[in-house]
Amino acid sequence: MANISMTETALQCHPLSEKGFVNRIALQVDRAEGGRLHIKYVLHGLIDDIHFPKAAQPERTDGLWKDTCFELFCGRGDHGSYVEFNFAPSGQWAAYAFTGYREGMTELPCAPPHINCTAGEGIFEMTVTMDLPESLRTVDVMAGFSAVIADRHGRTAYWALAHSPGKADFHHKDCFALQLEARSAA
Rank of each mutant, 00 (worst) to 15 (best):
D30G: 06
G166T: 09
I4L: 06
E84D: 10
L108F: 11
R183W: 07
A160P: 02
S5Y: 00
Q92I: 02
S135W: 08
H172R: 08
G91D: 03
D30S: 14
G77T: 06
L64W: 02
D174W: 00
G80R: 07
M6S: 15
A150V: 13
L27W: 03
F98G: 04
T129I: 05
P89M: 08
G77L: 01
L46W: 08
E121F: 11
E71D: 04
K167G: 12
L11W: 01
Y96Q: 05
Y96L: 13
C69F: 01
H44F: 10
A147L: 03
H44K: 12
I115R: 02
V29E: 01
A119D: 10
V128A: 08
S81Y: 07
A168W: 00
L136T: 02
G122R: 11
V83H: 09
G100F: 10
G100I: 02
I39M: 03
V22W: 00
K54A: 15
P165A: 10
L37E: 05
Y41W: 15
E121N: 13
F21D: 00
S90P: 02
G154S: 05
H14E: 06
L178T: 11
W65E: 11
I123R: 14
D67L: 07
D30W: 06
A97G: 13
I39N: 02
T138P: 00
L108D: 07
L11G: 01
I123E: 14
R155G: 09
F98T: 04
S135E: 12
A185F: 15
P15E: 11
R76G: 01
K167T: 15
A185D: 14
L132N: 01
C13Q: 13
E134H: 12
A162C: 09
P89A: 09
R31V: 04
W65D: 10
F52E: 03
H51E: 13
T106P: 09
E107I: 15
A150G: 09
W159H: 02
G100M: 04
A160K: 00
I115V: 14
S164L: 01
A32T: 05
A177P: 05
A97E: 10
P112N: 10
G35P: 00
G154A: 04
A32G: 15
A186T: 13
H79F: 02
K66G: 02
A157T: 11
D67M: 06
G45S: 06
